[in-house]
Design a protein around this nucleic acid. Structure first.
Lengths: 192, 192
DNA sequence: TATTATATAGACAGGTCTGTATCGCGTCAA
DNA sequence: TTGACGCGATACAGACCTGTCTATATAATA
């Protein structure tokens, strides 16, 4: 039983509330009550609510990349299969009850100013995801890797949006096949 | 110069603020100040802020269907082309400066409870959009119209999400080609 | 002219928001 | 034993929130 640090306890509790209810909908008092931490303790670890939100988004960023790497790991050296594997994993993700959408899209929605702290982290994450798609597409020999990256990012975000909109029974359940179709269309005939 | 009704003035002003900044971020006082209307007048036309939000969403719903019908109108009787035409229009829409994303996705984001008033209107709209896609896909002779409808809805919402996330220069600019690819994959060889 | 409907203007109630200040308790190291 | 330190609890300031109330102005209608 590794005891979590206070900082981590705050981050986890606040993150859960943010993810479910939204950033503006959750007040600091609620976080304090939910985590059982004192208000001053929270403010000593995170100077402002904005800082807490940014810290949460950075944690989600890290977790999502672990998820991503885990998804493509079994297909090392076969970039085309890796691209598909991401969407196989995504299909499973958007069908799981602990997924309430995308924390970054929520941030972009609630903090529309492009240069606001939360939105900046969100853009950085999505851009990094796009680059990953493009690199894999390029490695797989795509004719126009950037175009494929655009298309796959649309599918990814469309799936996350669908979870938030419809709940568990959402059209993201068919995202793998869509991704497969787009990949096939942008890649030369399968070799292996 | 048709003078707008007070109700419409409130709806337009509030809608603009909601769309840009978000529902929770905009207070009633801000709407009152921006529209130049008295607070009591607002509350006589809309009993609560939630009612105002719902009324706004219903107006957006109507406007979006007009946009949709206008997009497919030139291709009457050719459902396959009509499907593509929606995404040609969407590409144009997400590149225009007055588009800040999707008011319904924002509602789903900020009011995550599936049975909250705003979320209900949002779900109804998206479901109707899905049905339109499915009907057109079926009319075009798609093998699995429901699957194609799922896929196209992902692209649509992915594009709207991309606008909110990245601003004017977003990957939604390539959504038409993605839609075309998915449509081609689900439809028998073009006849006409 | 009197009435009715609708508008503006602004004070106000009661609650919630973020962030600060204060006090006291326990722990651990010197 | 002493002192530093992290933490819990709680009161508080000042701003903002939704929604109500009163008072007044205006315009159409009976």
């Amino acid at each position: 039983m590794a005891e979590l640090s206070t900082r981590q306890r705050i981050l986890d509790g606040a993150g859960d509330l943010f993810f479910r209810q939204g950033y503006r909908a959750v007040g600091v008092d609620t976080i304090v009550k939910e985590t059982g931490v004192a208000k001053m303790t929270l403010y000593r670890h995170f100077p402002s609510k904005d800082d807490l939100i940014v810290a949460y988004l950075e944690q989600v960023n890290q977790l999502l990349w672990e998820w991503f790497d885990q998804a493509i790991e079994p297909h090392q050296g076969r970039p085309r299969e890796q691209l598909v594997a991401v969407f196989t994993a995504l299909e499973k993700l958007v069908k799981s009850p602990q997924c309430h959408g995308c924390a970054f899209m929520m941030a972009a929605s609630e903090f529309p100013e492009l240069d606001s702290p939360g939105h900046q982290v969100a853009i950085a994450h999505k851009r990094a995801m796009w680059e990953r798609f493009r690199d894999l597409a390029q490695a797989a020999g795509a004719r126009r890797p950037e175009v494929l990256a655009d298309q796959l990012l649309l599918l990814l975000d469309g799936s996350f949006a669908a979870v938030r909109m419809f709940g568990l029974d959402n059209p993201g359940a068919n995202v793998r096949e869509a991704a497969q179709t787009l990949i096939d269309a942008q890649l030369p005939r399968e070799l292996s």
